[in-house]
Computed example of a mutant assay.
Amino acid sequence: MINNDGKPTHQELQKRMDDIPAVWIKCPICGHAIYKKHMNEYRDCPECHYGFRLGAQDRIKMVCDEFEPINLDIKAPAKFNDPKYLAKLEKARKVTGLNEGVLSGIATIDGHKAAVGVMDWRFVMGSLGSATGEIIARLFEKATELNMPVILFTASGGARMQEGIESLMQMAKVSEAVAKHSKAGLLYISYLCDPTTGGVTASFAMQGDLIFSEPHTLIGFAGRRVIERTIQQIPPKNFQRAETLLKNGFLDAIIKRADMKETLSNVLALHEGGGSND
């Protein structure tokens, strides 16, 4: 719209501003501004190596040479029929191309076979619903059947409260599948991505034989505000970041994305008895 003096209205100016494509992205950790066209293949900050959030398919391409998906047809049961919740699920399916918030399959990494699962933060913030838990539990069961290690990339806001108590029950269901996999003497690598919080952190994310993380990943159970109100104190600024957890013994290593595939390949080789003393 144009005013009588020939100049665009405030609404028109705002519309034009909104239509300008964003060409810069700011690192949420160090504040470094990155020109989008110069973003590297690993989508991490060149200054502090914070990894910008990835969809499940992008991470699979980054890590796996081959990937055969399984359990693609599993979705939230029809009994969860609240219209608002159904609208959220439909939107998430369109955005991610997935029926649920985790993509699982049998993969090859530098010739090493593994069962791989990747939680997708774009699907209702990676929340743990009944279908999410079912897919992850089946991944561990399949790995146990095939005598394979599991690599699980977590990224979650916690339990999906639209499903009530059934969302919380997934913690126990997946943990049981993890325990059976462990009892069979098989390796479980838990790889924590930004963010890993709530019931996922309180269960299978922290049950790995090896627990890795990306730099500056947010890892915790309750949110900062809840903790502050509970303990009536102000926690340290980075108390829920990967570096603090590593310092206090909750992680085995923090691995930059550029080293992610090589590290996983080396660990799988050692697990198979293929490591060397070089």
Rank of each mutant, 00 (worst) to 15 (best):
G133Q: 03
S203W: 11
L72A: 14
I20P: 08
Y42L: 00
P195V: 06
I135F: 11
H32L: 12
K36A: 02
L146A: 02
V116N: 04
T201C: 08
N71D: 13
D5P: 01
N238P: 15
A78F: 11
F212W: 00
E68W: 10
E228C: 12
N40H: 11
F123H: 07
M260F: 09
V124T: 11
F80Q: 09
P28S: 14
G31V: 00
M206P: 01
T108F: 07
G185M: 04
N248G: 08
E41H: 12
S203Y: 08
T144M: 07
N266P: 06
V178I: 05
V226A: 13
I165L: 15
C48P: 03
K15Q: 14
G97R: 09
R224W: 02
T196L: 01
D82G: 09
K79P: 02
K37M: 11
H10W: 12
G185N: 02
W24S: 14
E134Y: 05
C30W: 01
M169L: 13
N3F: 09
I189V: 07
L152M: 10
R224S: 09
G111Q: 12
E41M: 13
N3A: 13
P236C: 05
E141V: 00
H112M: 14
A155E: 06
K36G: 01
P195L: 13
P46D: 03
